[in-house]
Computed example of a mutant assay.
Amino acid sequence: MEKEICKISVASNWLGDEYIFYEDHTIKRVYDNHSLNSNKTEWLKPNEISKQSKDKIVKGCPEEFKEQVMQILDYP
């Protein structure tokens, strides 16, 4: 497994929603559908992430990783 760059939580309520970025430019999302269906995992490509979600990810990204994460997301 590639080295992790950072984890960014974009949860807006008590349900978890976290994106994990790796050095090989892969993106893993771990999220909860509801309280009985938690910690679901999916691997995403940048074009599978909505503009709204990308905005939240970049906004929540630690400054030292922001440029790298923006490149992975192909964020303007």
Rank of each mutant, 00 (worst) to 15 (best):
M1G: 13
E2L: 06
K3Q: 13
E4M: 15
E4I: 13
K7E: 09
K7P: 02
I8S: 10
S9T: 12
V10T: 15
A11W: 03
S12A: 10
S12E: 15
S12P: 00
N13R: 05
W14Y: 11
L15V: 05
G16H: 06
G16A: 11
G16D: 13
G16S: 13
G16N: 12
D17W: 00
D17N: 13
E18R: 06
Y19K: 01
Y19A: 02
I20G: 04
F21D: 01
Y22K: 09
E23Y: 07
E23R: 08
E23M: 07
D24M: 09
D24T: 05
D24N: 15
D24P: 09
H25I: 03
T26V: 10
T26F: 04
T26E: 14
I27V: 06
K28W: 02
Y31W: 12
D32I: 01
D32Y: 01
N33K: 12
N33F: 09
H34S: 14
H34F: 13
S35I: 11
S35Y: 14
S35Q: 14
L36M: 14
L36S: 11
L36E: 14
S38Y: 10
S38W: 09
N39F: 07
N39M: 09
K40C: 10
K40H: 08
T41M: 12
E42V: 08
E42G: 00
W43K: 05
K45F: 07
P46N: 04
N47C: 03
E48V: 02
S50P: 02
K51C: 08
K51D: 15
K51W: 10
K51S: 12
S53E: 15
D55N: 14
K56V: 00
K56E: 11
K56N: 02
I57S: 01
V58L: 07
V58D: 01
G60H: 10
C61T: 03
P62T: 04
P62R: 06
P62G: 03
E63F: 11
E64G: 03
E64C: 09
E64W: 09
E64R: 13
E64Q: 14
K66Q: 12
E67F: 05
E67T: 15
Q68L: 05
Q68A: 06
Q68N: 09
I72S: 11
L73Y: 02
D74A: 13
Y75Q: 07
